[in-house]
Design a protein around this nucleic acid. Structure first.
Lengths: 203, 203, 203, 203
DNA sequence: TATGAATGAGTGTTCATTCAT
DNA sequence: CATGAATGAACACTCATTCAT
């Protein structure tokens, strides 16, 4: 691939992430091309259809998120701190796009999925081993929640406000994931209730 | 207003809420009309432009949510339970639409805003007074979070899975909102609440 | 026909003439009904389809115009004055609607056509007999021109300005229809010009 | 601008003038696009909204009309002939569109307005200087009348019949604008009539 | 009989995608 | 390869007409 073509491809992906995080999951094509400073034809040359563009966007975001998780595992002072670093980093890397555009996306790459799953599992199992996470913590509690906190609330807040609120929500949520206190505080634990309730609640 | 016109208006609002929660914040007009079982012209008679429809949707959702909050304050066994009931009810009443369509909406009714603010403030101040919420809990910690948990993740999950995950996330988040004394304050955990709540919550 | 029904019919016709002269030849139905102060259903009861409404409008206008012509013949001081009175009266009676809506109208009533034709022919033949109209004056020179001057210019002028301009144009045009002067004044007649011009003009 | 784009723009303007003169002032967009032989999207690319299209149409017509007037001033044998050439040319160049679509149009270009006004004023002042126009001739007598004669009567006449009638009406009207003989021909002028008439006529 | 709500075909406009330059 | 003009299907909206109240 020629150098200029590679450069255009990168500009397009960056532009797509920006536009998606600003305007939602169904980005206007010319908006992306205009943001990237190229013609609409160039966008279609690099990404002939919608899935190919969105897949590339998700892939780029996932790669960055996984790297953030691996770094967190390597650098964190303890296993709770590792999870915390991971979730905040994912937010900063735009993990929200995954959710927004997912219906149209199909990232199958086994290597990528493997690394992503591995990072999450390690974060959770370390936390449970060290007694800093609830015993019943699942991957869904981390993955889906991270995606949820990455989505813009889109209520007219500035980007800075959005980010501040999201980080705050993550901190509170992480506190809810702590095992120790929950375990101590509720010896006659209500743990069974939620799942039971869940079953009854769904129609 | 004629009886049939009122009926159609209600059908349209219900349909709009359904479609918005399924398909996102910019619902296709014919989809709403078709869902309501009326012609497209009828939709435009009742809601001549997009803001008027979305405002009505938000208003209806807010009214229901406020009522749920007032009921929670009246019926809850303790102030943490009241907040818990409120957040789960808001989710069940489709609070997520508020977020999704907010950019186009402008609900100014002071009476409604007053009631909404009053419910939230009471829930939080009661909780802090009783030492079951973090000292630094703010309205934003409740309002924005409730909206966030109300939004569909839209990752190809069924409606039932969506709801189960959202309720689970709320429970974890609520645990994170517990104050320092929460551990001491709730040794006799609120076993009854969940099942009772569960029954009341289903429509 | 009940008295109130007759009243509604009249109100609708008056409203239709007003709306047509203001907004052009394709009047919006609800605008007419609203102007008349009745429901849209009432309009359709009286005039089940477009032609029936427009025919009634044209008929009413023609009747008034014919009466004006007959009065002009009876009261005028001379035959040129009769024609002048007729054209100005036709303008005041809204003759412009005839032209605007004609494509959709089909006034066949032989009696009406007979009276209309008779008035015009008498006006012209009297004028030629008295030497106050060009020898070559035809019915088309009067009928089509009268319609033309009755049409609003619609260039943002007020109703009063419109009427003033139209009456002024009629006076000038009538002067052009005078016979004596034309005959004497253009001995080196411009007759050749039109044909020569005609050749150049047609593409 | 690319050569093909320029070509399409011209085709669209020509088509718009044709359609407007045939069908009236609110031309159907697909009709224009179809007449021009392009897609509807192309029309919107060149003229994103109605005013921009109609402005371009008026501008083109005005330019042609002004050129016709300048040519008439340069080539005419006398000052009455110049005015006659101008009015007939304006008709041939579709001056009628100005009137039909004016409410939606806003041609502000000072240079264009200046040239247009200058041509008209010169035509009239020359005519008055040479004694071939009524002393009280105004620009409105020429401009508005020219527009009026340019409008189709739309009474089911063919294009050729329309044009023949309009040119005939112009010739008669021009005769009415002659000054010298008007004074001589109507010594017992009907001056009283207009005002008396005026009283009766105004409501 | 009058009313105005409901209908849906028709028209206006946007935007994803193709293709000539 | 890059560009941006052209295309037309899809969606938004209006309004003539019908019909329940």
């Amino acid at each position: 691939m020629r150098a200029d073509a590679r450069r255009n491809r990168d500009k397009l992906l960056d532009a797509a992430i920006e536009v998606i995080l600003e305007a939602g999951g169904d980005p206007a094509r010319d908006a992306i091309a205009a943001r990237a400073g190229v013609g609409i034809g160039t966008l279609y040359r690099h990404f002939p259809d919608q899935p190919s563009l969105l897949n590339a966007v998700v892939r780029r975001t996932l790669e960055r998120t996984i790297e953030a998780g691996e770094a967190a595992l390597a650098e964190a002072t303890d296993s709770f701190d590792a999870l915390r670093r991971y979730m905040h980093s994912a937010l900063d890397h735009g993990i929200g796009v995954v959710n927004l555009i997912h219906p149209l996306v199909d990232v199958r790459d086994p290597e990528l999925r493997g690394r992503a799953g591995s990072v999450i599992e390690t974060l959770i199992s370390n936390g449970r081993r060290d007694g800093v996470l609830r015993e019943d913590t699942t991957a869904a509690d981390v993955v889906f929640a991270t995606i949820r906190f990455g989505r813009p609330l889109a209520v007219g807040l500035s980007g800075a406000e959005e980010r501040a609120i999201a980080h705050r929500h993550i901190d509170i949520y992480l506190d809810g994931l702590r095992g120790s206190r929950a375990a101590e505080a509720s010896p006659s634990s209500p743990e069974g209730a939620p799942s039971a309730r869940g079953k009854r609640r769904r129609k």
